[in-house]
Design a protein around this nucleic acid. Structure first.
Lengths: 219, 219
DNA sequence: GAAAGTCTGTTGGATTTCCAACAAACCGGA
DNA sequence: TCCGGTTTGTTGGAAATCCAACAGACTTTC
């Protein structure tokens, strides 16, 4: 477990916590580590939301399945990121999404009640954690807002450009690698894979970008 | 100002605060009240995000303008609801959205730094406020998630049905009134007004719903 | 290195949306 | 009640997406 302390310290939830304090805190928060194979799910739609997850290794995808069984990718969570915190903090009974490992992964699950409830004894850090949680939730909110910005564009082309420019900005470089293959990107953007591929070709012919597999360069 | 104390007490941010304590708290949080005419804006895209707003009367729409000037409605905020909290809590420099009064309105603006920073003297309630903020942010997160669920549907019909069933569920009744006219609903759903009107007609012919102006009934 | 499986780009027809325009219904004020 | 402005429903052509199918490129496995 100690091998992941670096990840945890870089995690926004534990911002400001000393390494020596982590062990005690994790116990206090009811933490348990879970190891997952690719495609293995951490929770499914309809499950109760009573924990917050921290990705230690690998990556986790948040998926939503619609009435007809069409699957869309809500987001992908990388090491050091949290997931499920909004649902558990809001106290929803049934999760509206599911979470599966995009790769072999390890995640830490924290009991949300222990995170939110101040305990008088050892942990003077609960209020710090709650403050951090505000930051995390606000940041997630921004991410959702950005996703919404993309999703509310009308055309495949506009969605692609909105996503790619955001990625370039995040990478602080016109060259970057995305965490999706074509099918997953289409699921993420909510468009047809074939139409998206065609649009990518067109964008390349127009000299707007270059792409090979998951690597992109905006021109 | 006292006339709005009822609204504030019902507001999730002040949950658990006694009426007698409100006046002191508001002063401590740097609150100032603003009166707005219809269409008047509270903040615009690009403004700094250093406050959180509480709607006291009327309603506020959060708008996003895309590259071509097309406007879309991110959400509508009603009395007792907060807005802008995600951006200010996350500390973004430039707001990605703007906020305008959908009707003649009054809003309360709180200095975000005073909300987040614990002050040792009079206000023992800051930690309570921060806890409440976690709830609010998590709830907003859920709302965004739902909006994303709607926005990521492919067809106008599916978007309409997703939105209307969510509204019916929120109203706990198959009959409900929405806060939009047709154009605003189209902007909210991110579809063409005329195509949406046509789809609504079709849904009525099929016996799925009845609608007159902003009133709907799901069958 | 061959074979099987996966990923990507392309194509064509059916379907849907977009856009502009217009007419009818509705609402508020003179 | 009449008028003018707004909202809503309808229509037709242009454009974009969806869907299914397929071929070539790439990866992995044996």
């Amino acid at each position: 477990m100690k091998e992941f302390y670096g990840i945890l310290q870089a995690c926004a939830l534990f911002c400001g916590v000393q390494e020596g304090e982590l062990e005690g805190m994790l116990a206090c928060l009811g933490a348990r580590k879970v190891t997952l194979q690719k495609e293995e799910s951490i929770f499914r739609e309809g499950d109760p939301a009573n924990f917050v997850g921290v990705v230690l290794r690998g990556a986790v995808r948040i998926l939503r399945t619609d009435f007809y069984g069409n699957q869309s990718i809500v987001g992908q969570v990388e090491p050091g990121d949290l997931f499920g915190e909004a649902f558990s903090c809001a106290g929803v009974q049934a999760l509206p999404v599911s979470a599966v490992a995009a790769q072999p992964s390890e995640v830490l699950l924290l009991d949300i009640h222990r995170v939110l409830t101040l305990c008088a004894n050892t942990c003077a850090f609960h209020s710090r954690i709650v403050s951090n949680l505000v930051q995390v939730l606000a940041g997630k909110n921004l991410g959702l807002n950005q996703k919404l910005d993309i999703a509310s564009r009308r055309t495949t082309r506009d969605k692609l450009l909105a996503y790619l420019t955001a990625q370039a900005k995040a990478a602080q470089s016109p060259r970057f690698t995305i965490p999706f293959d074509r099918q997953a990107l289409a699921d993420y953007l909510g468009v047809e894979r074939s139409a998206m591929s065609a649009e990518l070709s067109k964008l390349q012919k127009e000299g707007v970008l270059k792409t090979h597999r998951s690597q992109f360069e905006l021109l």
